[in-house]
């Protein structure tokens, strides 16, 4: 599948090296020091990392949608607007939603829980299994996402996902943000802000927004690093996976559900 360039590898290394030197040396504007992201990133993401999220549902506030808004902004999801001739009902069923707020009531105890629902980043994702072209993929670091270059829009992954985490783009998109290329006819879902994370960021957009609003319900981090905040929190509190009976070993965990 992947085409190899006729570009000699040395050129690329040389370029990267020069970039690194120039970048680390040059203080281009006062007060801004440039550093190289992912030094030695030729290998790309590694399986020594597994990105995950822990959601403390006790802290998730009723009626708050800061995470949803932040996700929409980060990924340019709200750039897609309702086609003029579409009904509100259908638009609501068709518009992409990477993350959504859900309010639940326990049938036994009547306890009400609020939580954000998104791609659960399974270790064994059913969407990846069923995808005919391999466009649905799980990266080495555990992020499950769609390679839209090979997505043919068959929607089989949406049939297979037990969490209804995926959306299909039903109409033309006039504009995108650079970090989130997306277009009509492909399937998409939460990718844990992969471009951000690859750039060296340690938080996702939804986590930042939740933090900013003072709820701190979302904790993102490396579940394989024993010293990370998420690893410690997972050890301390009992958490659960949604639909744990399917044994998909999700990367998104919830406490107090």
């Amino acid at each position: 599948m992947s085409k190899h360039t006729d570009q000699p590898d040395m050129k690329r290394r040389e370029f990267l090296g020069k970039t690194a030197i120039a970048a680390t040396a040059a203080t281009v504007a006062p007060g801004v020091m440039l550093t190289v992201a992912n030094a030695g990133s030729d290998e790309g993401v590694s399986s020594d990392t597994r990105w995950g999220m822990l959601i403390d549902t006790n802290k998730c506030a009723d009626g708050c949608a800061a995470c949803v808004d932040a996700c929409n902004k980060e990924n340019g999801i709200d750039i897609l607007s309702k086609p003029e001739d579409q009904s509100d009902e259908m638009w609501n069923a068709q518009r992409p939603q990477w993350i959504r707020k859900v309010k639940l009531k326990d049938k036994q105890t009547g306890v009400v829980t609020n939580l954000p629902m998104m791609c659960q980043h399974c270790e064994h994702p059913p969407c990846e299994d069923v995808c005919p072209t391999g466009a649905s993929l799980k990266r080495a670091d555990g992020i499950v996402m769609v390679d839209r270059h090979t997505c043919i829009g068959c929607r089989y992954c949406m049939m297979a996902c037990p969490y209804k985490a995926r959306s299909f783009i039903h109409s033309n998109i006039a504009e995108q943000v650079v970090n989130s290329p997306r277009g009509k006819g492909c399937v998409e879902s939460c990718n844990m802000c992969a471009p951000r994370i690859d750039g060296g960021a340690t938080t996702t957009a939804c986590q930042d927004a939740c933090m900013k609003d003072g709820h701190q319900a979302i904790l993102f981090g490396d579940m394989k690093d024993p010293d990370s905040a998420i690893s410690k929190a997972l050890k301390e509190k009992s958490s659960r996976q949604i639909r744990a009976d399917l044994e998909l070993n999700t990367g998104v965990r919830y406490t107090d559900v």
């Binding site: 992201a37 943000v177 690859d198 750039g199 060296g200």
Partner: peptide, 15 residues
């Protein structure tokens, strides 16, 4: 709002 994603030069800005 959209800064952290690295750029074509392989550079990123300090957090």
């Amino acid at each position: 709002s959209v800064t952290t994603g690295g750029n074509k030069l392989g550079l990123m800005l300090d957090d």
